[in-house]
Structures are given as structure tokens and as C-alpha cells.
């Protein structure tokens, strides 16, 4: 859906993007993560055809963003980190303006407004001025404006900032629904725990370069299933037994706990547990330790 090739972007005295290249597959949710100043917002603005890079090529749904920016805009919805609303207009008028501004046929507009408001929990507030809304509801209106024309690609920069836990959960559900309906989504955020709820892919950007761009599930598989065994009290035999077991690698022992990669299937995992118990070890926990997005992020970020 999105292809970026050799993207180079300069601010007056700083190069923000150093030949960035990547692809984003259709109907995925990509978590764009990286430290402050990594170039995330600049990258999103280039993808949204709001900035002109020095060189490189971006295509969105086969549309060259530099050659046909307006065609690209029809395919993209973008919610920026710091957004604004027309405070003196009602929610309904804001949504109507954005529908009209994105060429949504006049006859379809009332229905689109109703559906969008329903999805975002704004139905009760359609006739309220946006200037009177709380931060959370303003965020919802802004998201509504970004999706009312049914874009194929949705890009959100820190969308959960200012939302309460319930609204965050609703945002998460909304993104999963939009993805299921065929939308490709990129979300930039610092809150990795939330991204984990709905992201299918993760892209790490650091100092203007892509360090990692892969499916999150693939990250776990590539490094093997990570298992964790915990004893009720430290026992040196735990390390010895595991080290001697076939399929165990990257073994790490911390007091009564062992972490290790295990390449065997579920049956062999059960057999391993049986061996440990029969050896007389007091196992209080034995199971898969899923590598979190934060683990992967920190690992990749500090890899070089």
C-alpha cells in the first residue's frame, strides 16, 4: 500500500531523514516508534504530502505522492500530534465541512456523519460547538475528520495523548475495526503498551534511519519461543538441566528464575516440564514469555 524509496529530508541545518526506504502492506497497523527527534513526524508529514523531501519517492496506493499530491490526499487521512478544530462550529458542521472538502457526494454526507459520530461516540454531541468539548472529545472529532472520507491509509501521530483509559480502549477497538474494513494504518506513539494492543507491524526509526520494520508476530518466531521457568527457591540444577536439554538456547538464570529460547513444539515443551518436575525441582511457574514490543524496541535500538 505504501512504498518509500530513498527518502531524504533536510531542515535548514539538520538532515531529518537519511535515505529512508520501506514498504507497508495493505490492511496492517504499523506502530512507528523511535526516540524523540528520530524523524517520525517528518516522515508522516512527507507521507501525507505536506512536506517536500529533497529526494526519494513515495507511493500510496500506487499514487506518486510528489507527482499527484491531491490524489494522494484523497487516499490519506492524517491526524497530527497537535491538531486544531474550528471552535465556533458544531461537531456536525465540522464533519460536514471535512466531508465536503474531501469531495464526499452531497447525498452521502448525512449518513457518513452519522456513522462516523456513532463510531466515535459523538452522536450525542453533534450539535455542540467543538470549542466546548473536552480534550478527549476534541480528539475524537479530529479522528472523525480524518476518516470521514473513507481514506485507504490512516496516519495518526500520538492519537492517544490526552485520552482517558476508556477512550483509549475505544480508540484501540476503532483502529482494529478500520483495519478489518480494509484500511492501512500507521500510528506513531511513545506509549508502546497501547500500540501492542492493536499493531500488527512495528517500524523503528532512529536518527532518521529505519532500524527495524517487521511484523510483530514474526519478531517472536524469529527469536524462538521464549520460555520462563520459576522455582519456589533457587536450585542450581535448574540451569544444569536446561543447558543439557536439546532446543534450549540463550539461557539466562536469575536466582530461582530461568529464561530461555526453546525451539521445540508444545509436546516437547510438556516433556521438558515433566523432566524438571521429575528431577525434584519445585516449579511454581512454567510458560511462554512473550517478547513485548518494548523489549524488541529497546533491543533493536541498542543493537548498534
Amino acid at each position: 500500500m505504501i512504498t518509500v524509496d530513498g527518502l531524504l529530508f533536510d531542515y535548514p541545518t539538520v538532515r531529518a531523514l537519511h535515505g529512508v526506504s520501506f514498504t507497508v502492506e495493505t490492511e496492517t497497523i504499523t506502530a512507528l516508534v523511535g526516540p524523540n527527534g528520530a524523524g517520525k513526524t517528518t516522515l508522516l508529514r512527507c507521507l501525507a504530502a505536506l512536506e517536500t523531501p529533497l529526494s526519494g519517492k513515495i507511493t500510496v496506493d500506487d499514487v506518486d505522492v510528489a507527482e499527484r499530491p491531491r490524489a494522494a490526499h484523497r487516499r490519506i487521512g492524517f491526524l497530527q500530534d497537535f491538531f486544531g478544530l474550528y471552535d465556533d462550529l458544531s461537531v456536525r458542521r465540522c464533519l460536514r465541512h471535512h466531508a465536503a472538502a474531501h469531495d464526499v457526494p452531497r447525498a452521502e454526507r448525512p449518513q457518513r456523519i452519522a456513522i462516523t459520530a456513532e463510531r466515535l461516540g459523538l452522536t450525542e454531541r453533534l450539535d455542540q460547538k467543538t470549542g466546548q468539548l473536552s480534550r478527549g472529545f476534541r480528539q475524537r472529532v479530529a479522528i472523525g475528520q480524518a476518516i470521514i472520507h473513507g481514506p485507504k491509509v490512516l496516519m495518526l501521530d500520538e492519537p492517544a495523548a490526552g485520552l482517558d483509559p476508556e477512550a483509549r480502549q475505544e480508540l484501540s477497538n476503532l483502529l482494529l475495526t478500520l483495519r478489518a474494513e480494509g484500511m492501512t494504518i500507521i500510528v506513531s506513539s511513545h506509549i508502546l503498551v497501547e500500540l501492542e494492543d492493536y499493531s500488527s507491524h512495528m517500524m523503528i526509526l532512529d536518527r532518521g534511519r529505519v532500524k527495524e520494520n517487521r511484523a510483530i508476530a514474526a519478531t517472536t518466531i524469529a527469536s524462538g519461543r521464549r520460555l520462563k521457568a520459576v522455582l519456589s527457591a533457587p536450585d542450581a540444577r535448574l540451569g544444569e538441566l536446561l543447558a543439557a536439554t536439546e532446543g534450549v538456547s540463550r539461557l539466562a538464570i536469575e536466582e530461582q528464575m530461568a529464561r530461555f529460547d526453546f525451539s521445540g513444539d508444545a509436546a516437547r515443551q510438556a516433556l521438558l516440564l515433566k523432566i524438571l518436575i521429575e528431577a525434584g525441582l519445585a516449579i511454581s511457574h512454567f510458560g511462554e514469555e512473550r517478547q513485548t514490543m518494548q523489549d524488541v524496541y529497546l533491543e533493536r535500538l541498542h543493537a548498534e
Binding site: 501525507a48 491531491r70 490526499h73 491538531f83 486544531g84 474550528y86 471535512h98 472538502a101 474531501h102 475528520q145
Partner: peptide, 17 residues
């Protein structure tokens, strides 16, 4: 004023010619 109000980028991304 739209730049200050942070609505200008949304306008730039609209289909208005």
C-alpha cells in the same frame, strides 16, 4: 489564523483545489 489554530494542514490535505 488557521496556522495558529492548527487547522491549515487539514485544509492543505483536503480536495479543495
Amino acid at each position: 489564523g488557521e496556522v495558529v489554530g492548527r487547522t491549515w494542514d487539514a485544509q492543505r490535505m483536503s480536495s479543495i483545489g
